[in-house]
Nucleic acid binder design. Structure first.
Length: 500
RNA sequence: GCCUCCAUAGCUCAAUGGUAGAGCAGCGGACUCUUAAUCCGUUGGUUGAAGGUUCAAGUCCUUCUGGGGGUACCA
C-alpha cells in the first residue's frame, strides 16, 4: 500500500517536471457523460468537454482507451499520441485509475458500437495517490456484471463512503433520491401552509418520547444538557404561541441500540396542525408518502424486498385490538390480564408481572402482529398507557386517539390527536414520571412545557415520520446504513476511541 | 447485551497441521479501434491483535478488536 502511494507521488513530481500543475484551480465541463451517451449524434460536429474520474485504462502503445466517470455516468475516451501531442501523451502515461481529468474533443462511435470521445486535449484536474479498489465489470446482454464484488465489503463501504460512492453508482442514486424525498416532504408541508421551524438540539429537559438521551455539558453555564430525543414539546410551545402549522425536519438522538432500522442519530419529521385531529394526520401521512414516492419512483407502487406494494390512498385503517384479532387470532377483550401476561411471556419470558393491561396489549401487538403488516396500514387506538401526550379515544374507553403507519413490518411514523387539557396533561406526565425508578427511559416532567399547556393549546393533530425509514421504503434498501451517508460505527481502531 | 458466522497482498479469493498462492491492480517492456484488451517480465504479506497447544499453526484452543446475520432494548 505504502509502495503504491510512493509510486504515485513520484508521478506527481514527473508531471510537475513536464511543466504541468496536477492540481489546477478550475475547469468548465460543458457536457455530462449522460447527455452524450444518450444522443451521440448531437455531438458529432462540435467538440464536447467533460470532467470526471478515470475508472479504467487500456493502453495500447501510442493510443489508449479509458473510461471516465462523472456524477451521472461513464463514457469511453480515446487518446492518440498524434492527436494530443508528444508531451501531453507522456503525461497521459503518468495517469492512474482514480485520477480526475477534463477532456475535450469530438464524439464518435467505435466500430464495436461504443460512444467515445476522441480526445484532442486533456487536463489533469487531480492526481490521486491512494488507489481505488479495482472493479472489473462487463456488460452482458445489457446487464452490468461486477467481477470483483465491492458491495460485499460492507465495512469498507460504510467506513469509506467516498469509495463506495465512486464504485457503486446505485449508492449515488440512493443519496440523490434521499435529497429529492426531503425536498418533496418540505413541499407537501409548505403547500399546506406549514412553516419550518427549528427546535433546540441541546435541551435542559429532554422529552416527547421514551428514550435514553445523550448527555453533554456546557462549560460556560456549567450545566448538563441533553441532545434532543424529540422536538415534540417545543413544537407544541410554538403552536401555543400561534404558529398554527409548524414542522421540524432534523436530527434526533437516542442513546440506544443499533440495528437494521435504528441509528443513534436519525432524521425525523414532526408536524403539528392546529384545529386538526389524527384523521387529518392520516391524510397528511398519505400525502407525504405518495408525493415523495411519485417524485423518486414516478409511480405510487413500490417494490420492497421483492414485494409489490401500492401506496395509493386511502390506506387501510385498523384498530390495534382488531389487528391482534385479525393477524394473531386473539380476541383481547375476552382475556384476563393473567392470560395476556402468559401470552407475552411466550415471547419475553422476563416480562414483569406489574405490566399494565394496556402495555400487555401493546407488547402482544408488537410480538405477534407488527411483522405481518404488509400495509400500508394505519394501526389506530393504542392503549392509553402507551403515551401521556395523546387524547383519549372517542370510541374505545381505555385507549387513545393515536396511530402508527406500517409498511412491510416497518413502523414508519406515529401520530396523535394531541392532549391539550392542561390539568389532565400534568396528571399524565406526573404519573409517568413516578415510574422513573422502574423505567429509566421515562423523561422528567418539563415544567415549562406544562406552563405553555396552561396558557392553552388549540386542538391539534401531530405527526412524526421517520425519514430514514421512509428513504429505505422508497428506495428499497434493507438497512438504515444504506440511507445514512455516515452511519454510526464502532471506531475501527481502538486508538480512535480515545481521540476527542 | 446474548447467540452465531467471518477477518489471508490495494481488491476478489485459494492454501489436508508441513516452503503463504492465483486473478485483477501496480511496476518494466511490446502494441494506433480497445473494452474483463492481449503478450513477455516483475514488485507486493507482522495471514486483524495478543497469548497457548505442537517438532511444526493461516489452519487447533483462549482472549481481545472490527464486521455480517439473528435476537433483546428502542411505548
Amino acid at each position: 500500500m505504502q509502495l503504491l502511494i510512493e509510486q504515485r507521488k513520484a508521478k506527481i513530481e514527473a508531471i510537475r517536471a513536464l511543466g504541468v500543475d496536477p492540481y489546477p484551480y478550475r475547469f468548465d465541463p460543458a457536457n455530462t457523460t449522460r447527455e452524450i451517451v444518450a444522443d451521440p449524434e448531437r455531438f458529432s460536429e462540435q467538440p464536447v468537454s467533460i470532467a470526471g474520474r478515470l475508472m479504467s485504462i487500456r493502453g495500447k502503445g501510442k493510443t489508449a482507451f479509458a473510461h471516465i466517470q462523472d456524477a451521472e455516468g461513464r463514457i469511453q475516451i480515446y487518446v492518440r499520441r498524434d492527436a494530443v501531442g508528444e508531451t501531453p501523451y507522456s503525461i497521459w502515461n503518468l495517469l492512474d485509475i482514480g485520477d480526475i481529468i477534463g477532456v475535450k474533443g469530438p464524439v464518435f462511435v467505435t466500430h464495436t458500437g461504443e460512444t467515445t470521445v476522441q480526445v484532442t486535449e486533456f487536463v489533469v484536474l487531480c492526481k490521486s495517490i491512494r488507489p481505488l479498489p479495482v472493479v472489473k465489470e462487463q456488460m452482458v446482454e445489457g446487464e452490468r456484471r461486477v467481477y470483483d464484488d465491492i458491495r460485499s465489503n460492507v465495512e469498507l463501504r460504510y467506513r469509506h463512503r467516498s469509495i463506495d460512492l465512486i464504485i457503486n453508482p446505485e449508492v449515488r442514486e440512493v443519496f440523490r433520491k434521499r435529497s429529492q424525498i426531503l425536498q418533496s416532504v418540505r413541499r407537501v408541508l409548505e403547500d399546506r401552509g406549514f412553516i419550518e421551524v427549528e427546535t433546540p438540539a441541546l435541551q435542559r429537559v429532554y422529552g416527547g418520547a421514551n428514550a435514553r438521551p445523550f448527555k453533554t455539558h456546557h462549560n460556560a453555564l456549567d450545566i448538563d444538557l441533553y441532545l434532543k430525543i424529540s422536538p415534540e414539546l417545543y413544537l407544541k410551545r410554538l403552536v401555543v404561541g400561534g404558529l398554527e402549522r409548524v414542522y421540524d425536519l432534523s436530527k434526533n438522538f437516542r442513546n440506544e441500540g443499533i440495528d437494521r432500522t435504528h441509528n443513534p442519530e436519525f432524521t425525523m419529521l414532526e408536524a403539528y396542525q392546529a384545529y386538526a385531529d389524527f384523521n387529518d394526520m392520516m391524510a397528511l401521512t398519505e400525502a407525504v408518502y405518495v408525493e415523495s414516492c411519485l417524485k423518486v419512483n414516478g409511480t405510487t407502487t413500490i417494490s420492497l424486498q421483492g414485494r409489490e406494494i401500492n401506496l395509493e390512498p386511502p390506506w387501510e385503517r385498523v384498530e390495534m385490538v382488531e389487528a391482534i384479532g385479525k393477524h394473531a387470532g386473539i380476541s383481547v377483550e375476552n382475556l384476563s390480564d393473567e392470560e395476556l401476561l402468559s401470552m407475552v411471556r411466550v415471547h419475553d419470558p422476563d416480562a414483569p408481572a406489574v405490566l399494565s393491561r394496556g402495555m400487555l396489549i401493546a407488547d402482544l401487538f408488537e410480538y405477534r402482529v407488527e411483522k405481518e403488516l404488509t400495509g400500508p396500514v394505519f394501526v389506530t387506538n393504542h392503549p392509553e398507557e402507551t403515551s401521556p401526550l395523546c387524547k383519549a379515544s372517542r370510541t374505545r374507553p381505555g385507549f387513545i386517539e393515536r396511530f402508527e403507519p406500517y409498511i412491510l413490518g416497518y413502523e414508519i411514523g406515529n401520530a396523535y390527536s394531541e392532549m391539550n387539557d392542561p390539568v389532565r396533561q400534568r396528571q399524565l406526565l406526573e404519573a409517568q414520571a413516578a415510574h422513573r425508578e422502574v423505567d429509566g427511559e421515562v423523561p422528567p416532567v418539563d415544567e415549562d412545557f406544562l406552563r405553555a399547556m396552561e396558557i392553552g393549546m388549540p386542538p391539534t393533530g401531530g405527526l412524526g415520520i421517520g425519514i430514514d425509514r421512509m428513504v429505505m421504503v422508497l428506495t428499497d434498501q434493507a438497512s438504515i446504513r444504506d440511507v445514512i451517508a455516515f452511519p454510526t460505527l464502532r471506531p475501527a481502531d481502538a486508538r480512535d476511541a480515545d481521540t476527542p
